[in-house]
Lab assay of single mutants.
Amino acid sequence: SYYEILDVPRSASADDIKKAYRRKALQWHPDKNPDNKEFAEKKFKEVAEAYEVLSDKHKREIYDR
């Protein structure tokens, strides 16, 4: 789930989600993982997609249904 990707509970606040996104984006940024760039790019995209949905109140409500 998007919550698992960002490592936050379903009850996470918008601020918690933003902090988790920043932490995970740094962790999986391809430039930070030169030895495993392809895998890092995949993870980085997953993190971005999760944040896009969970950071938008309307999209998150739909996702949580």
Rank of each mutant, 00 (worst) to 15 (best):
K24D: 01
Y51S: 01
K43V: 08
K59T: 06
D56G: 03
D7E: 13
F44M: 15
V8R: 00
K19S: 09
L6M: 07
Q27W: 07
E46Y: 05
Y2A: 03
E61L: 08
A40T: 05
R23K: 14
E4S: 11
D56Q: 04
K59N: 05
F39G: 07
E52V: 05
H58E: 13
Y51E: 01
Y21P: 00
K43D: 02
D15S: 15
I17H: 00
N36G: 07
K42R: 15
Y21W: 10
A48I: 15
F44W: 13
E38G: 08
K57W: 08
N33H: 15
D31W: 05
D35P: 05
D31M: 12
V53T: 12
H58P: 04
P30R: 04
L54E: 01
Y2C: 04
A48T: 13
D16F: 08
A50P: 00
N33S: 06
Y63M: 01
K43L: 07
W28P: 01
H29L: 11
K32G: 09
E46S: 06
V47N: 02
A50T: 01
D64V: 01
S13A: 06
V47C: 12
H58W: 10
I17N: 01
E46P: 02
K18S: 12
E61C: 11
P9T: 07
Y2I: 03
K42E: 13
A48S: 14
R60L: 02
D7T: 03
I62A: 15
H58V: 15
D64C: 03
D35F: 15
K32W: 08
R60F: 02
K24S: 05
K43R: 12
Y63S: 02
A50H: 00
D15M: 14
N36C: 14
Y3A: 00
S55M: 05
A12M: 01
A12N: 01
L26S: 14
D15T: 10
I62E: 15
F39N: 08
R22P: 02
V53I: 11
K42Q: 14
Y63T: 02
K24L: 13
Y2H: 06
R10N: 08
I17W: 00
K37Y: 11
D7K: 04
H29N: 13
A48N: 13
P34S: 11
R22F: 11
P30V: 06
V8T: 03
R60I: 02
P9W: 05
D64L: 04
Y3C: 02
V53H: 07
V53L: 03
H58T: 15
A40M: 06
N36R: 12
I5S: 05
N33C: 07
F39H: 11
P34Q: 15
K19M: 12
Q27T: 07
S55N: 08
N36L: 07
Y51K: 01
S13C: 06
D64I: 02
K57Y: 09
D35I: 10
A12L: 01
K18A: 14
A50R: 01
S13Y: 04
D16K: 06
F44A: 09
D56A: 02
E38F: 07
D15C: 09
K59P: 01
R23P: 03
Y21K: 02
I62S: 08
D64M: 01
K45D: 06
R23S: 12
R60W: 02
D15L: 13
K42H: 08
I5F: 04
K19L: 14
R10Q: 12
Y21D: 00
R65H: 08
R60E: 02
N33T: 05
K18I: 15
E49G: 05
H58N: 15
K19V: 13
R10Y: 09
A25I: 13
K43H: 07
I5N: 03
K59G: 04
A20M: 04
H58Q: 14
R23I: 14
R60D: 03
Y21M: 05
K45M: 11
Y21E: 02
S55E: 06
D64G: 01
D31E: 12
L6Y: 00
I17V: 07
E46V: 04
K18Q: 15
